[in-house]
């Protein structure tokens, strides 16, 4: 073991942690939606890719940094998610999973092909001024763009936590997730809360998209990969657990980066799936999940 190797390992772990925070934000959206309504959003990666494209367009055509377009994209996605839930998905609540799956798969196909039709199949990326800046901490080098994205993701997750623990609407959503009959009994408008929840989930993943475009170029075909990745993260962390989604994001982010260093970058998914299989075998409820829920 040379110190060179240790340094590059530490470097890979750092990079993985930073990317993992953005992954965590993406997975958080999926987890919130599932945790509250038991609907699995099979269009999750697709929604994120749309967010990436919007941030790219803002940068390309309006010269707006993705960090600045992020709040606008999140707000737009909240409205779109709210509308999607109250019109299309609401009638499917409580129906068998395969019907929900078909509906959301249809939404996913529409979104991806919409992106393809508008932006084409080429990969698009954002070249920011800070692209090559970095911060140093001892021997470690932090990629500026990645660090900013990670900090923004953590800040947004913190806001979300405040929303769910401090506001009446947030607590009402947790109540409806906790006991649906109880929610009806106290007079909560569960349909409105569900629409709100889908809006929040979509806003999270839209924001994650705006951050992701600063680290990774986008193509329409990334969408399915991200849906899968979000699933892996959420299942590893524990379905419905917010902490689980964030920690799962970090774990998968680090595993990808380390796999890229030790094996080959193209083998990174193999390691993620390996972790998924291990978790399913040893702790099926996920690392932070509660058994029996």
């Amino acid at each position: 073991m040379t110190s060179d190797f240790l340094l590059s390992l530490a470097q890979a772990v750092t990079k993985g942690l930073l990317t993992g925070m953005v992954y965590g934000l993406m997975a958080l959206g999926l987890s919130v939606i599932f945790g509250v309504m038991r609907v699995v959003n099979f269009a999750h990666g697709e929604i994120m890719v749309v967010g990436m494209y919007l941030a790219w367009m803002g940068f390309e055509y309006l010269q707006v940094s993705p960090m600045l377009s992020l709040p606008v994209i999140a707000a737009l996605f909240f409205v779109a998610g709210y509308a999607l839930q109250s019109t299309l998905i609401s009638p499917f609540i409580g129906r068998p999973e395969h019907q929900q799956f078909l509906l959301l798969l249809a939404v996913a196909i529409l979104l991806v092909n919409g992106c393809l039709a508008i932006a084409g199949p080429d990969s698009r990326s954002v070249q920011m001024d800070s692209q090559f800046d970095s911060y140093e901490l001892g021997p470690l080098v932090f990629d500026a763009v990645r660090l900013h994205a990670a900090l923004a993701a953590v800040a947004i997750a913190g806001l979300l936590w405040l929303f769910f623990t401090r506001t009446r609407t947030g607590k009402s959503i947790r109540a409806a997730a906790d006991n649906n009959m109880g929610a009806l009994v106290v007079g909560l408008d569960v349909r409105r809360l569900y629409a709100f929840t889908f809006g929040v989930g979509a806003a999270c993943v839209g924001a994650a998209g705006a951050l992701m475009i600063t680290i990774i170029p986008v193509t329409p075909f990334l969408a399915a990969e991200y849906t899968l990745l979000a699933f892996v993260i959420v299942i590893v962390g524990g379905l419905g657990s917010m902490t689980g989604a964030l920690m799962g994001g970090l774990l998968i982010g680090v595993s990808e980066a380390v796999a890229g260093l030790l094996l080959q970058p193209s083998l990174k998914s193999m390691v993620s799936f390996g972790i998924l299989i291990l978790v399913l075998l040893l702790r099926p409820q996920g690392l932070f999940g509660k058994s029996g829920t």
């Binding site: 009959m181 109880g182 009994v185």
Partner: peptide, 25 residues
């Protein structure tokens, strides 16, 4: 108001949060 069969409290919310949810109207 409705005090439901099986009590139907929110098990993962605190007692205070449960009471706060009661003030939904």
């Amino acid at each position: 108001g409705h005090v439901a069969e099986g009590r139907q409290v929110f098990p993962n919310l605190t007692v205070l949060e449960n009471l706060e949810m009661g003030a939904t109207p």
